[in-house]
Design a protein around this nucleic acid. Structure first.
Lengths: 134, 134
DNA sequence: ATATAAAGGGACTATCACAGTCCTTTTAGG
DNA sequence: CCTAAAAGGACTGTGATAGTCCCTTTATAT
């Protein structure tokens, strides 16, 4: 239970690397992939998701690459994880009330809600600045 | 991320049902399965794990079945979940130091350790008595 | 204009964990 | 010794994960 996927792991590695680079430097995907030891084609998919979530800005063509969309202290670990893994939901029931028919009688429900809330707020307190050790 | 499997869900349903029964009553697997709407053969595997973990006591043969091994207030949700899902580990690195080679440089590591610790202690505070609403 | 260097995006594949099923064996009572 | 239960092993279908491959789009440099 509660395991981060390899994709999530790679995502964090990649973005933390980016956070460690000079703010206005555009990094090549190939460089990032080599530095953090992740297959480049796979990392490409991950950075596409980052781009859509507004965590990174991408530039195409010659001289293109990736940059953080905001300074590292304004990007949280929660954002990064949820960008690639989707919302954190310890139990399907937590997604939305009524998702399971046993809802009304389910005393476990509120416990998962607390786990979710607690975890999200912990991850929200950690920024890329912290992780990059700047 | 962080999703409880269906097995874990079923496990909780089954054990909470048992906690709601009279303390010394031996319940049939077939009854439990029917009550909580889980395939009996699948629930059988789950209760075998419970039995090995010492959460329930099993009796074979005619008149056999299952009973909680301890009173409901002495069995925690953490025990139940870990019995069937294994240890709660948000990230492979958290399992043991040195599991990943990037260990020493990995600033994310301590964050996962906190998530793990926090979640475990929350689940440890909830007993079957609470869940069964006794 | 055209060659080139990048990211974007779609389609495809292999592997593995999850979610079960089925069948045989063991244990206990009547 | 027959029957009722759990124990255990072997097997299977399905879906998510973890990629790969190839083509398209966009931008720059010559």
């Amino acid at each position: 239970m509660m395991e981060l996927t390899r994709k999530g792991d790679y995502a964090i590695r990649g973005i933390v690397y980016l956070a460690g680079q000079p703010l206005d430097k555009i990094s090549l995907l190939s460089d990032i992939a080599a530095a953090v030891q992740v297959p480049q084609t796979f990392l490409a998919k991950i950075f596409q998701q980052f781009s859509k979530s507004g965590i990174v800005k991408s530039y195409r063509g010659t001289g293109g690459g990736f940059m953080l969309a905001r300074p590292p202290e304004q990007i949280t670990l929660l954002e990064v994880v949820e960008a690639v893994e989707g919302p954190i939901t310890p139990n399907r029931c937590v997604i939305a009330a009524g998702e399971c028919e046993r809802d009304s009688i389910c005393t476990v429900h509120p416990v998962w809600a607390r786990v979710k809330q607690q975890t999200r707020s912990l991850l929200a307190e950690v920024s890329l600045k912290d992780l990059a050790g700047i």
